[in-house]
Design a protein around this nucleic acid. Structure first.
Lengths: 235, 235
DNA sequence: GCAAAAGTGTTCTTCGTACACCCATGA
DNA sequence: TCATGGGTGTACGAAGAACACTTTTGC
């Protein structure tokens, strides 16, 4: 048996971080899961994450674990909840500090082909280890609340994107349909995106229909809005 | 020295909970703080809270600590963040799972006269122990975000209240002033409050002016709104 | 040429906002 | 009686919602 060399006057729980990584493939929102290679729950899928070290904050911990397990270094990682049920891990008492992350398709090159990491559609989730289904549900709920008031859609798409893609992203996250004309009018009026005339490498093969225009997100315009008025993306 | 009888294979941090308790006295929003009787930071003021036990979740922990330290059993306690800086506690590595709570003046009878617990106005805060100023700032930020879309004002007031009181509460939390007529029109139109003709015990001594009407919050109306439309209290 | 998807403008309604006067109460 | 604060309604402008046809593209 391993040596028990860390000693405390009072009992301490273990602390771990977990992260629900969201991605968008042009059609619908996806979740990145990792297949567990060890017990407990060996063979089941789980959120990336791992135990906190003494020389790192929880933010640093989840970034390190994400990089180790998926090669991702996402721009956006937000902490949204803590899970502390007594029996959530059969090995010992573990507190999970939970995060969600938004990644662009173009960032994923590394982690995507790892055989033990895969993207899953929300409607086709496998059975998850631990209480990770509960964590994922809360992450999704938080994301849905947040998308109304922060331009998080752009964190999920490439720098150049089309308005129909953006609309599909919103529709996929919120599970509703919008009127194309009103969506376009609203997002354009807000000023946070502008047309982009550079020719883009891959026009992304589609099946039929007119070729949509490309746009870019104006981070600076949004930053200015935060102070004065308020960015809203409700329908 | 105390015996170190709890042993682990890997190092574990301690886990504690802290809670920013908000109350409203009819004029402005207040915070409940506790004076520390022991080192570290002895004599300074701190948020109520304490260490997690192995037989309780963090939610149970903060409720227990609140009751022990302030005799409060608040209806509303929400977890909003985790603080994990390496040096936030000089004794050992401590992760703080942080909550805010909303209490009614009428609930406070117990904890209010405890000599080591006091309400402070936001503009007159004493020096706080640990990183509790940072925790409080984030709690306040969360509260400000939330008040736009959830009727949390009613959790801070007695069951019977007046519209001017409610307006002062919103103004105090958000730090702005509203037009009386528009405020009243909006809150009445929403349907979540209705006039209450029962005579109320103490009309709350005021200095001058017409006696305001009493209203009550319709929880059921609000619950119905959550599904269909959306409760908004923006100005 | 046909099906699928994208671009474009107008009308109507709803909501937000600005604004002034009278009334009840306590000092 | 005067000062303080509460109650009430209207008019204007901005934003949201509903709505149809034409254009481009792949098959």
């Amino acid at each position: 048996m391993a040596s028990l060399k860390y000693k405390y006057e009072y009992p301490h729980p273990a602390v771990a971080t977990d992260c629900a990584v969201f991605g968008f493939d042009g059609q619908s929102i996806k979740i990145l899961l990792i297949r567990r290679g060890i017990e407990p729950y060996k063979g089941l899928w789980a959120l990336p994450g791992g135990f906190l070290r003494m020389d790192e904050t929880t933010d640093q911990c989840i970034r390190r674990e994400l990089y180790e397990e998926t090669s991702l270094q996402p721009a956006v990682i937000e902490q949204f909840g803590v899970f502390s049920a007594l029996d959530r891990d059969p090995r010992e008492r573990v507190i999970s500090v939970s995060y969600y992350s938004l990644v662009k398709k173009s960032d994923v090159k590394g982690g995507d082909d790892a055989s033990d990491a895969r993207w899953f559609a929300l409607g086709a989730l496998p059975e998850l280890a631990f209480d990770h289904k509960e964590i994922l549900d809360k992450a999704l709920h938080t994301l849905r609340e947040k998308i109304h008031f922060e331009p998080i859609g752009f964190d999920l798409m490439d720098r150049h994107f089309t308005i129909p893609d953006l609309q599909r992203l919103y529709e996929s996250i919120l599970g509703v349909r919008f009127d194309r004309r009103n969506f376009m009018k609203k997002i354009l009026q807000s000023g946070v995106i502008s047309e982009c005339n550079e020719s883009i490498a891959a026009p992304a093969s589609r099946h039929a229909g007119r070729t949509p225009k490309n746009y870019i997100f104006n981070q600076d315009v949004y930053e200015a809005m935060k102070g004065n008025g308020r960015f809203k993306m409700e329908f």
